[in-house]
Amino acid sequence: MGWARQEYEALGIPFHLRGKLTDQHLQQIRTAWEDDADHSSGGIPIWVGGMSDAALRRAVRYGEAWHPA
């Protein structure tokens, strides 16, 4: 997700929405992988990183692995 506010400003994306947007994107990826007609190669392991409570929740909800950094 990132922590550098400047990166989000450069792209015109509100920094405070980064968690919500990441969750939405991960859910869309998971949904696409559930439909063999849409994505026939199957799922790809998602590693979620971060030390915040939100990162840990995201790892449990969307990931196959967690990385602390």
Rank of each mutant, 00 (worst) to 15 (best):
M1V: 12
M1N: 13
M1W: 11
G2L: 08
W3V: 05
A4N: 15
A4K: 15
R5T: 13
R5D: 15
Q6A: 15
Q6H: 15
E7L: 11
E9M: 13
A10H: 15
L11Q: 15
L11N: 13
L11W: 12
G12H: 13
I13D: 08
I13F: 07
I13S: 07
F15C: 05
F15H: 14
F15N: 09
F15A: 07
H16R: 11
H16D: 14
H16W: 05
L17W: 04
L17C: 10
L17K: 13
L17T: 12
R18Y: 05
G19T: 02
G19K: 08
K20T: 09
K20N: 09
L21R: 12
L21T: 01
T22V: 04
D23S: 12
Q24W: 03
L26A: 01
L26I: 01
Q27G: 07
Q27Y: 06
Q28N: 09
Q28W: 06
I29H: 01
I29G: 00
I29S: 00
I29R: 04
R30P: 00
R30L: 09
T31E: 13
A32I: 09
W33H: 05
E34C: 06
D35S: 11
D35L: 07
D35N: 12
D35I: 12
D36Q: 09
A37Y: 00
D38Q: 12
D38R: 14
D38S: 14
H39S: 14
H39Q: 10
S40I: 01
S41H: 10
S41I: 14
G42F: 08
G43E: 11
G43N: 08
G43T: 13
I44Q: 01
I44K: 06
I46C: 04
I46H: 01
I46L: 11
W47G: 04
W47E: 09
W47R: 08
S52G: 09
S52D: 08
S52Y: 04
S52C: 05
A54T: 06
A54I: 05
A55E: 05
A55D: 12
A55Y: 01
L56V: 08
L56E: 10
R58H: 02
R61K: 13
R61Y: 01
Y62I: 03
Y62L: 03
Y62Q: 04
Y62S: 07
Y62W: 08
G63K: 02
A65L: 06
W66V: 03
H67T: 00
P68I: 00
A69V: 00
A69D: 10
A69Y: 10
